[in-house]
Amino acid sequence: MRGYLPPVEVRVPATLGEALTLLAAEPGLWTPLAGGTDLMVVFNAGHLKATRFLDLSRLTELRGIAEDNNLLSFGSLSTYTDLRECRAVHQHFPNLVKSAQVTGALAIQNRGTLGGNIANASPAADTPPSLLAYGAELELVSVLGSRRVAYASFHQGYKQMDLAPDELVAKVLVPKPTGRGFHYFRKVGTRQAQAISKVCLAAYARLEKGCVAELRIGLGSVAPAPVRARAVEQLLLGQPLASLPIEAARLALGSDISPIDDIRATAHYRSVVTGNLLAQMLRELTQA
């Protein structure tokens, strides 16, 4: 362990109200801590700047997965294991189950949370592409109340979010797909398990009368933050399944992504493979 234990202050609020009051009193001074699977890595390496932490893990208000007729509402402390074990998630959001299955391995899945995965804002996180594909919304709370934002507009740049210093992600709301749906998820990691993404693509399409009636594609590890492939979506919307313009879609992808070279893959590799996954997804969609 290279890190050392600096003086830190940790508060363990018993209620959400208490947590929000603390955040409101000193906005930006408190770093929320949920499952710790990202934060503790940085802390152990001795790179964590923050010294004041708000341990959210005991806030029951942020737990649980609730279902109504139209949507599933995930408390932000829902773990990957919660996602994997929930029947309704399997039924409506197979991509989310797959995202959870490929995030780290079991010991990580037991601790890491959906809210943490979102607020840590890593471009390589594995649940965001699926949340983007399903058109998720976030419920953000502060002492002033709550507001809803489309997840697709939440990430605004590398580690930049539409999240005020006194706000927490309380819930992730995902509308249940209706009609005939098509789900696709694939992560390309550094290995088959316990891996960080080099490319991740999740897609959801609603099919109507042999055409693409609705389509959302979420991408990971190919931009400063998780992104929607909006140019591709635009191109394909309304197209007949029998003759999807796969090569044109691949070309359009160029304006949706901005991959970089890093320790895990080159920008070129990411760009080629994202195109290939898109083509693979569209071939499957053609068969749907």
Binding site: G36, T37, M40, N44, D55, T81, L106, I108, N110, R111
Partner: peptide
């Protein structure tokens, strides 16, 4: 460093004492 914490497998290097 895997252990069981409250019946679940966790990496004990990523669990701060407070949790």
């Amino acid at each position: 460093c895997s252990i069981l914490l409250n019946g679940r497998l966790v990496n004990s290097c990523l669990v701060p004492a407070v949790q």
